[in-house]
Design a protein around this nucleic acid. Sequence first.
DNA 1: AATAAAAGTTAATCTGGTTCAATTTTTTTG
DNA 2: CAAAAAAATTGAACCAGATTAACTTTTATT
Lengths: 196, 196
Amino acid sequence: MQNQEFELLSKHILSRVYLSEEELAFFLSQFKIVRVKKRQFIVQPHFPSKQQNFVVQGAFRSYVVREGGEDNTIQLAVEDWWITDYNSYYNEVPANMFIIALEDSLILQLDYEKEKMLKAMNHKYQTYFITILERCLAFMQRRIVSTLSKTAEERYLETMEQYPQLALRVPQYALASYLGMTTEYLSKLRNRRATK
Amino acid sequence: MQNQEFELLSKHILSRVYLSEEELAFFLSQFKIVRVKKRQFIVQPHFPSKQQNFVVQGAFRSYVVREGGEDNTIQLAVEDWWITDYNSYYNEVPANMFIIALEDSLILQLDYEKEKMLKAMNHKYQTYFITILERCLAFMQRRIVSTLSKTAEERYLETMEQYPQLALRVPQYALASYLGMTTEYLSKLRNRRATK
DNA sequence: AATAAAAGTTAATCTGGTTCAATTTTTTTG
DNA sequence: CAAAAAAATTGAACCAGATTAACTTTTATT
């Protein structure tokens, strides 16, 4: 079980909660290794998002599509991040977003039922899931503040500073949509700075 | 222990997780009853937010203040809602927001240390806290989508439809700031509709 | 009841960011 | 490697919503 695919997740877990070797092994045994190609969807509207996904290698984008056809990026995820449609996953309702691979990727999937079983079974497992939730919540709160209070340029600069590896890695249209602006405007911002 | 103040919280808990009478009584015994007057702060920047607050009666607003002096409302809370600075609370760092009472209010406070103790002590207590987190996360995700993808007017109408009791109860400046627009603009929106 | 403070309104002006459309560059695929 | 598809750039016209400022109404305080 201690093969390559699980190394990153093991570290992620052990940095948050202490588990014995057996506890860790059992925990990991509940995951499914899934390889996805670039542009492949792992979540689609109208189907429930029954898994949480831990990114081992690659990059993902979750987004909703409006009537007009525009899309809005909800989350970007690279290595060491979890991604799913939380609303669909936790409330067991159909998803209303797409999650698409931006690169060929490797993920570890955990079924909702298995997560539930793990949480019920061992207090330490549950603690791990709580820490993920708590950090995710704090992150979203910061994002709401930033969306409400900052200009497009400020949001761009902030993200470049705080998550340069993410901002430089994903395609520009994905970043623009994550930051709540058009590709055209982000392009303008970037080139305005570059030539100053 | 089964006095009036705790009735609403008891219902909130029991609708989410089954507890015996003793378990519930112990759980409730960890809370502190606090009465706050209108315009009183329960959280301030630079001080850690060491409690989570369950609103039994009244209304609250959490907001951050920018350099310019403008403020942005992060959350509004009335009866049956929890409110705190989640970033400060869970990460045990100083708050960066204010939480102020919009009316004379009654809240039940739970210390971070006590929540931790409760979660460690009984699996069912932990489950309750997880459900709060999950719902909060799903709510925030919906808000991010709405902020990114909708116009000011659409956000206003959506909130009026989904949370009329909230939207009509809080002062207009608080609602405007929650929806990410100026009071002037919200006033215009309201009167534009009214006279059509 | 009188005064002050807080909240809400209205209108004119201004701007950050969108929209549209045409073009160029980069990436993907047979 | 050629052709097609996807992504990024540029500029002109436009608009949703902010800003400013003066005024009215409501609420709180003595």
